[in-house]
Write a protein that binds this DNA or RNA. Structure first.
Lengths: 167, 167
DNA sequence: TTAAACTTTCAATAATTATTGAAAGTTTAT
DNA sequence: ATAAACTTTCAATAATTATTGAAAGTTTAA
């Protein structure tokens, strides 16, 4: 496999995997491109490489910056803006995990909490609703705590966690 | 909050959370409905309750069965089919984790493996591609191993894992 | 074996989500 | 102050994904 084939394969696979880490295709592809680039890239270069429009590139870069995955860098003597992504995979994974927890898990935990504390009117269906949402609330909260705990170990968190789990 | 409001809130929240566990809205809503039901439900009841078509219900029930989350149950003296979902949240989480690993993570690990083993032609960009995809390959594989390890503890896996991590 | 009761399939359509491109906005150099 | 270089915004459009509903298929009871 040649460089170009490998590069395209990587970008498209990573792009379609977007759903797994909760971002859209273009966002994931831009990040993938920056991830294997040897230097900061301009909007121009990104749009040309991925064959996407200027508007699309601009919007998705902005979202990547909102996630804290991509940053603007100044290149000496250049007017336009250049972009780089976090290059350390573990740090990348940390950021994604924390963001998803904040954006998606925490709001759900809140709703489950609300629903699971409605007044028990004594009917079987209310009892079941309370019981099941309570269980789900506990599970979701535990998982969220787990993720945040894992991820706050900073240095080498994945390896450390794996070791602990294997014991 | 009354039963009906709580029920609807639960179903719609769980539905929109579908993306987090990688299934579509109708699928998640059907599962949610079954999850808080005190008895097995027929297709008829599901379509009426969620206001979705027969075809949609049929297809999504099938998918839920493919995932191993929902099962057909026979109800004595009834001709039509009835459905139930796994009621234990921990078992539910296990099934979802294992399925996502199989369906999404493993194929990506394979591509990363392929890409990261291309021939090093000595150029900087090839070196960077190899280095970064190798790191991603390792990370993804480690996480996949972690998930499968966690999840195979069967009984009370979440609590057990949490304890280990806190030590 | 037939017909009623039920489920599945799938082409058509609707709903949602992503993308474009050009106009408006901003920054910088002179 | 102005114009060139660049970025952002957003209404229009395209692409994707979900949903419908009716026809075809299956099962069961008599």
């Amino acid at each position: 496999m040649e460089y170009l084939e490998a590069k395209n394969k990587f970008i498209s696979t990573w792009g379609s995997l977007g759903s797994l880490w909760g971002i859209n295709k273009a966002m994931a592809q831009i990040q993938a491109l920056l991830f294997i680039s040897t230097k900061p890239l301009s909007m121009e270069e990104i749009m040309e490489d991925l064959k996407i429009s200027r508007g699309n590139t601009s919007m998705n870069l902005r979202q990547l910056m909102d996630w804290g995955i991509v940053t603007k860098t100044l290149v000496a003597g250049e007017r336009k803006e250049f972009f780089t992504t976090e290059k350390d995979v573990q740090e990348l994974a940390r950021i994604v995990a924390v963001e998803r927890s904040r954006r998606e898990i925490k709001p759900v935990v809140k709703v489950l909490e609300e629903v699971s504390t409605i007044k028990d009117d004594g009917t079987a269906k209310t009892k079941e609703l309370i019981k099941q949402t309570k269980a789900l609330h506990e599970l979701t909260e535990t998982m969220d705590i787990m993720i945040n705990k894992l991820v706050n170990q900073k240095q080498n968190w994945i390896t450390k966690s794996l070791l602990k789990l294997f014991k």
